[in-house]
Amino acid sequence: MKSIIFNIVFLFVLPYLMYGIAKKVKAFFARRKGPSIWQYGYDLAKLLRKEEVLSDFSCLRNGGVLTLSGVLAAAMFIPQISGSSILNLGYYDYILFIYMLSFSRFFTIITAMESGCSFEGMGSSRELIFSVTGEIALMMTVASLAFYGKAENFNGIFNAISNGGTEGLIIAIIASFILFVLMLLEGSRMPIDDPETHLELTMIHEAMVLDQSGPQLAFMSFSGMVKVYLFASFIISLILATCKTSSYYWLFFILGIIIISVIIGLIESLQARLRMVHVQQYILFSAAISLILLLSVIIFKV
């Protein structure tokens, strides 16, 4: 019970902290002071206090609600700061996790399309196209990991990695790499999408929330952050499983979150954004890596 509360509390703190840290790193490289690392939290709080303005065309008032609830439901299955997930389901919770993310993506897009604006259409189309390729990589990774541990749920995966020694380490590292790319995709971070340049024509996720405001926008933005946080948790759980840490798990977890945020910030500072037509290849590249993951798992297991 304690660990569940611990998880839930940090689920509402760490996501925007990650964005804040990444922003701070970017500011450092631009030789700026940058906003406080809590700035994203303040922004969300500000949005929640604002009046909600919807498009004339839109009928679905609860798009943001459904998006956020899909992500929150997905958050139930991934082990977080306490080292265990909030809800332990017996069978194939990783499929549920993937489909909960799809659920939230569905409503993000439907809400975007409600406004009947070409920018939203553009963003939605891009999101869907990239999600198809992303799905290949994610499914292959998850299936390989599950196969490695013959695991029927997330806990099984981490147990197998933890007991796998060097094999486990190799698999954890390859999987982390793929998950990292997918994290950038889901969170619409660089080099896939640039959250900073507010140019309607080049954005993916930001283009979809162009016509949203107030609580709706807060829910949408927070969903994006939680998605990044969940993938980061997945990566950290994989890596920490190889180290078999049990005491001070939460400390290592926060350290991991900080490291991942810094890496995100570094990528955004040092790398140019990909051309839209190359994003597909970038994600396909991660799918190719996931094929390597699958093959190494098969070699280890069969």
């Binding site: 009046e51 909600e52 303005v53 919807l54 498009s55 609860n62 406004s115 009947g116 107030g214 609580p215």
Partner: peptide
């Protein structure tokens, strides 16, 4: 749950419609 939260917020802050940007 989230619907309830939004409902509360909208009750406090209001909600209106305006043309698409």
């Amino acid at each position: 749950l989230v619907w309830g939260f939004r409902h509360l917020l909208v009750k406090l802050n209001g909600s209106r419609k305006s043309p698409t940007w």
